[in-house]
Write a protein that binds this DNA or RNA. Sequence first.
RNA 1: GCCGGGAUGGUGGAAUAGGUAGACACGCAAGACUUAAAAUCUUGUGGCCAUAUCGGCCGUGCGGGUUCGAUUCCCGCUCCUGGUACCA
Length: 924
Amino acid sequence: MAEYNFREIEQKWQQNWKEKGTFKAAVDPKRPKFYSLDMFPYPSGAGLHVGHPLGYIASDIVSRFKLLKGFNVLHPMGYDSFGLPAEQYAIQTGQHPALTTEQNISRYTEQLKNIGFAFDWDREVRTSDPAYYKWTQWIFMQLFSSYYDLEANKALPISSLVARFEQEGNAQVKAVCDEDTPAFTAAQWKAFSTNEQQQLLLHYRLTFLAETTVNWCGALGTVLSNDEVKDGFSERGGHPVERKKMMQWSMRITAYADRLLKGLDQLAWSEPIKEMQRNWIGKSIGAEVVFAVKGSNQKIQVFTTRVDTIYGVTYLALAPESDLAAELITDAQRATAEAYIQQAKNRSERDRMSDVKTISGAFTGSYAINPFNGEEIPVWIADYVLAGYGTGAVMAVPAHDERDYNFARHFGLEIRQVIEGSMENGSFPGKGGIVINSGNLSGLTMKEAMNKCIAFLEEQGIGRGKVQYRMRDAIFTRQRYWGEPLPVYFKDGLPYLIEEKDLPLVLPEVDKYLPTEDGEPPLGRAKDWTYTTESGTYPLELSTMPGWAGSSWYFFRYMDPSNNNSFADKDKTDYWGAVDLYIGGSEHATGHLLYSRFWTKFLYDIGAVSIDEPFQKMINQGMIQGRSNFVYRIKGSNTFVSLGLKDTYDTSAMHVDVNIVHNDQLNLEKFKAWRPDLANAEFILEDGKYHCGAEVEKMSKSKYNVVNPDDIIERYGADTLRLYEMFLGPLEQFKPWNTNGIDGVYKFLRKLWNLYHPQNGAFAVSDAPASKEELKALHKAIKKMEEDMANFSFNTSVSSFMICVNELTSLGCNKREVLEPLAILVSPYAPHIAEEFWALLGHGESITKAHFPAFQEAHLVESNFEYPVMINGKLRAKLDLPLTLTVPEIEKAALTDAQVQKWLEGKAPKKVIIVPGKIVNLVV
RNA sequence: GCCGGGAUGGUGGAAUAGGUAGACACGCAAGACUUAAAAUCUUGUGGCCAUAUCGGCCGUGCGGGUUCGAUUCCCGCUCCUGGUACCA
C-alpha cells in the first residue's frame, strides 16, 4: 500500500473487530474493572451530527487507554428509545413509533460504527424493548410495594408497615407520607375496609396515585415534569404549559432529598453540576409557626427560615390560590379582595414570572394573633407568595426581608426593626446581628433566638422546627402512547399491581396515537386493555411512564443485558459496580442525574444492588455549536459580493450551506449547483476568492450549518474525525464547530504514516537501537499522554503527538524501538491506523491487547539548562549551564556574562534570585 | 437578583505548587517543485517603534494591590455565557 488509504484501513479494522469480538466484555475477577459510560442518545430522525460523538470519542479514548493499562473495560452503548418525537411523527403520518424508532436506531448505529468505537455492541439496550421495560415495570412495582421509614432511614417493604399498623396504628410510625395522612389506632385499622386500607397505604407508598397540580401541555396532550418545562413552554416543541389539578402517579423522591443532597459530597463531579442539584433540592432549615385567627377557629400555618424575627412580623401574606385566603375575607373587604384573587388567577404563570417589579395585594379584613406577644396582625393576599412552596403562607418581616419591605412600603404597613443595624438602605437580613425589640429574645444572637423560639413553639404545640425542600415529588405519568405501560389495574377505583409473572405488560396496538374522544390517553383506544384475576376482569392504567423511567437504571442493564430472570444478576452488578467515568451533557443536571441517583438508592435499600451512587466520576462535555456561513447578495440581483466588499454595495446576507465552504472560502461551482436559482449566479471576488461571513449559532437545518460526521469521514476518515474533535479544544468547553483546522490533523496522520513508510510508500522499520533524541521525543509524548489522561485534557495530547511526530520526522527515525510504542500511544485516539501499523509490525493480535509503554524518566534527563536571565523583571540574556551547578556557581556564571554585564552597567545587583533549573533574576 | 463558568495573536487554543506568554494547529505571506492547479516541502508570521541592523517599548478584558517576578494570588469593575428565580 503506497499511500495512507484511510477508507480501506478503517473498513478492514472495523470488520476485524466485529468478527473477532475484540470489545466483548466479561466478568473477570482477576482484572480490575473500569466502567466507562456515555449518556445514551435518543435516536432522533435527524441522525447524528458532529456534536453527538464528541463525548463518545472522549470516553472511547479513555476506555482504550484503560484497556492498554490492563483494565477489564465495560464500554456499552444503547438507545433511550421511548419519547415524544416518534409519537408526534406517528400522529402526523400514522406510522407506528416502533417502526420510526427502529429506522432511526439503524441509522444511528451505522453512523456510530463508522467512527470505530470500542463498544461492546452485544450489550446494546433499548428502553422501548419489552425485554428491557419488563424490568422498568418491575422496579415500579418494588417502589409501589415500599415505603420510606425515617427511623431506618431507608425504604422498607409496605408489608412491614401493614404489620405495624395492625399492632399499634400509625401514631408512632415515623415514615414519609402525605401531609394530610389521618391518624388511626390498631383497632381502627383493623376495622377499615380493604378499600379504606388501600387508600391509606397510598399515602405511604414510594409511588402513589394522588391529585396533584401538574404542568399540563394541551398541545402535546400530556403532563410534563418541572424540568421538561422552560419559562412556561414545553422543552420539546415549545408549546404553552398551564397548571392544572389532575390525578397522577408520583414518585416520592422527596423521601430521598437528604440522602441525595449528602451523597453529592462523595462524588467526583464538577462543582457547578453539584451546585445545580443542591439548588434544585433546595433545602431550607426553619420552623413552622401556627397563627390563630382573631374571632375564628381558623389557623394559618407558615414556614419561615427566620423565626428569630418573629417580633418583627407586621402582616401575614397568603397565596391568592389558597382556599384559606378566600375563607378569611370579611364582608367589608369582599369586593376588592375577591377581585384581586380573580385578577391574580387570570394572570398566567408567565406574566407573574416576567413581571416581578409590580407589587400587588389585597387586605382580607382578618387579623391573626402573634403567638409570642398576642399582637393582632393584618392578613393580606399577595401574589408574591407561591401556593406550591411551604404552606403557601408567609409571616412578613418588612425590616429584614426585601420583598416584605417593598410590599409594606407600597401598602403603608408597619416596618419594625428587630435586629441591630442601620435601616438607612431599607431592609437588611442581619444574619450576624443581635436581636432587639423582641421581649425575652432581645440580646440573643440569631441562632440562640431561633432555638428558643422553636422550643417555645413545640412546648405550646403551635409549631416546630422544620426542614423544607424546594424539590417536589416527581410526576410519573404521561398521557401518551409511546412509553412503558404501568403494571397497574384498577379495582373499585383503587390501583393494584399485576402479578410479576405477567410482566412485561406489553404496549397494546391502537388505531390512532391521539387521545380518545372523551379525553382519555391513547391507551384508551386499545382493545381489551384489561387485566384478569381470580376475582374478575379489571381495567388497566391508561397512562404511560415518563421518558426518564427507562433512563434511570439503564447503566445496570448493560452489565447483564439479556437476563430474563432479574434486571441484572447481583454477581455482575457487584463486579462492575458504579460507573467509573460518565460523560454527557450538563443539560441533564437536574433531571436524569437526580432520578438515576434516586432509583439507585432505592435499589440499594431493597438489597438489589450494592452501590448507592451510580456515577462516581462525571465529565460534562460542552455543546458543539453551529458555525453558519453567509454570502451577500446585491439586492434584486443574482450577484454575490465577497465579505470585504459587501458594504460598498446594497446587499442582504443569506445563509449558505457550510458544506460547500472551506476555510470560509466559497466553492463557486458547488454554490451554483446548490440550488437551481443560483445556477447563473455571478460573483464579485477579492483576490480571486469569495470570502464568506460567519456567525456562531445553534446547529440547525434551517441555518444550513449542520455538519454530519459521515461527510467528514468520507473526506478525511474516522481517525481524523476523532483526532480533530479532540483537538478542537477542552472537552468541557462550549465551542462552535468549524472545519478550519481539520487539514492539520489529517496532515499529521499522513506524516505518521510516512514514519512507517519511509521510502516510496513501502513499509519498513529498522531494528537498530534508537538514538537518545528519538527516545526522548517518544518519552515526552508518553509522559504527556499519561498526565493528560488523568486530567481528561485530550486536546493537549493530540498536540504532543504532533510534536513527537514532527521531531521523529526530522530525525528520520524509523526504529522499531520507537515506532512500536508510538503506535500503542496513538491507538486510543486513532485506532484504525494504529491497528494497521501493529499488524505491519508483525503482531497477530489487536493492538488493544498490547501494554501501554512504560514511561522512563531517564530518557528526559538533561545535563544542561538554558537559564533565562531576568534583570529588573525583563529577559535580557540566556545562559546555557550544566544542571549540576550550585547556586553560587550559577550566580558567578551569570554575573560574568558579557550580555548581563552590559545591562548591569558596572553596578552590583541589589538582589540575586536563583531558582536552580528555572531562572536567574537580578535586581539592580 | 442569586449561584456557577469564562475573557490570551487574524482564528482554535497552550502555559497556573507564581518563574522565558503565545506550544500545537489553522490562516496569511514569501519561496521551491509544477505548463498550470492541487498536493507536498522550506522560511516568516502578537502589536508598535527602529538607521528595519544591534535592538527597544508595549502586550493575557479594565483599574488597583502583593511579589525580585503575576495569564496564574488578592481587592474593585466591565462584558460574554450556563443554571435558577417573588423559595419566605
